[in-house]
Nucleic acid binder design. Structure first.
Lengths: 341, 341
DNA sequence: TTGAAAGCGCTACCAA
DNA sequence: TTGGTAGCGCTTTCAA
């Protein structure tokens, strides 16, 4: 059995109240008593039991974090942000992975609540009503870090996907590209994928270009980006491909490599996200840098603010992003462009 | 205030003992009473407070996991293994990142203990005595998932780095390579990097080859792999480079790319680890697949076994690995080989 | 099969 | 400045 506050009290000849006071520095304690108590604590290696503490104070210093899959580097990045900032406020992270299973999500929300977490952050693949309903039952701060933007009454942290996408498309156009394809996973209309698509469409239409070169993937992974492409890329003489995320872009890049389409000479390929690998592959991928770490950091800051009863700022926080111009996109050469026209 | 067991007891007209019995299914309770209690629980949405439970049962169902950095994909993989298996036994993960700071490591070991974790897994960049001493103070199961192999009295889970490295070198030799360089981070003699180096040396010497083409990096990251190389690669007419980890191999690959040395035509480059990116880049990297997920899984299994007082198997568990032969390594062409001789 | 009560380790109140 | 004590929400004896 570990040593408890009682042992300390007994050994230093004071009451447990006094011991409690010195370890919490909560009320004045005379110098000598304090010294003695500290001495005993040091000697017998007493460490307060946080569980007992939590039971009475109601402060667990625990934040529940439910993620889809840590293997996604952007998820890991978000968790890093959450954890690092949380630590600054003495909060610890209780981690659960759902692997996209909605039932698991529901289950973990309950579980974490039973474990008395003070707040929860959900990095989810979906936002759905059942989850909302479940969260409703608990009275703790909650933030969505979702790739879906369907309106929810709970706070979210994200970037302006539509505008980012619009800007990226404009950038490609400014490079001289006219026939620009969009590659994305267009399954769920509430997904950010659709926001990205719409940004693309708006930019194309504004410039009087044809926004109909759309390649639908069957998922968000590399091989699905690869599989979504076919000969029509060449047939349509596309000179640029805007992929809705970096993994899909990687797939596109590999498709080009395998089909002897040179990047960026023959075709520019750009992504979205800026996961670590984007700047490691050759050619380095032009993409939109999403501030994943910051999203995590902001999410937990928001929770900590809520916890301290500070008035919360806006509900849906949008963070800045950046277009990372790298080697996979290139100004179109005029002659070549004319050839293809 | 959340509803407690008292509310349930009052509303269903029984004692809290009885309620406790039905929620835990610990002692016989008459059918009607049980039904009634369950009904009330459902109605008012009672959820047991795990903190209170832990205080009396001493079971927190919490495993502390201290990692270096989640951004390293292998770390994330290990954590996945830990979490998934842990969940099967109802264990949750309390996550802390040290970013290589030993002080933080020590601090978190204490913190997690105060939070009453039942076991701890340390994914560390080092194994050192201070940490060992700190762990000594607590009486909970502990497993090292370290990249260092210095002997420690605590259980470890790893692979046989020496032999894996030996085998990989032999594989390169079997491909016809004779001038094989080793690229690694040889700072700390207790590091697994040295085990890998020794595996390389043994294989080379056994075959009567010169094992002195050693490139020392200044760290384990891509750019450090890149920076470790120089013209001597060409001068020595090396035909293969064995890199002590995948990131370093990536750096080597990039170095070759930038210096117009074709991989694998001019030089074979192989790595160690098989992080996700290894099979995504082109050419796909030949490497040794370390079972990161399994290492995590085995580590937590070991802890759970310890917890259930089962007799523990061997202390230092070695897991199988695989050589992944991919596109960055290639049989040497005889004519070319002769040219270079 | 049930209830009363002790107690887990701690904080916080009240009284001295 | 100190000590006594109630009580956090629960499990687990012990007795009925």
């Amino acid at each position: 059995m570990a040593v408890t506050i009682k042992d300390v009290a007994r050994l230093s000849g004071v009451s447990i109240s006094t011991v409690s006071r010195v370890i919490n520095d909560s009320k004045p304690v005379s110098k000598e008593v304090k010294r003695k108590v500290l001495e005993v604590i040091e000697e017998i290696g007493y460490k307060p039991n946080e569980i007992a503490r939590t039971l009475v104070t109601k402060k667990s210093y625990l934040i529940g974090v439910i993620v889809t899959d840590l293997a996604d580097s952007y998820v890991a990045d978000m968790v890093r942000g959450i954890e690092e900032i949380g630590k600054m406020y003495n909060y610890d992270i209780l981690l659960c992975s759902t692997y996209g299973d909605k039932e698991a999500e529901l289950k973990y929300i309950q579980l974490l609540n039973r474990k008395q977490v003070e707040g929860m952050i959900l990095i989810s693949s979906t936002i759905d009503e059942e989850v909302d309903k479940e969260i409703d039952q608990y009275d703790i701060p909650f933030v969505y870090l979702s790739r879906y933007s369907k309106s929810t009454k709970y706070p979210t942290v994200s970037i302006d996907y539509h505008f980012a996408s619009y800007e990226m498309t404009k950038y490609l156009i400014s490079l001289g590209h006219r026939k620009i394809g969009f590659v994305g996973y267009l399954e769920d209309e509430d997904s950010t994928q659709y926001e990205k698509l719409n940004g693309y469409i708006r930019a194309m239409e504004e410039t009087g270009l044809d926004p109909s070169f759309i390649y639908k993937t069957k998922g968000l992974n590399i091989h699905e980006g690869y599989d979504a492409l076919d000969n029509s890329v060449l047939d349509h003489a596309l000179t640029a491909l805007f992929c809705s995320n970096d993994k899909i872009a990687l797939g596109a890049l590999n498709y080009c490599y395998d089909n002897k389409i040179n990047t960026p000479e023959d075709i520019s390929v750009v992504g979205f996200g800026d996961i670590p690998i984007a700047s490691l592959i050759r050619p380095k991928l032009t993409t939109i840098k999403e501030p994943f770490y910051d999203m995590g950091a902001v999410a937990i800051r928001r929770i900590i603010k809520d916890l301290s009863k500070e008035v919360s700022e806006e509900k849906h926080i949008k963070l800045p992003y950046q277009i990372q111009k790298r080697d996979s996109s290139k100004k179109i050469e005029l002659e070549k462009y004319k050839d293809k026209e």
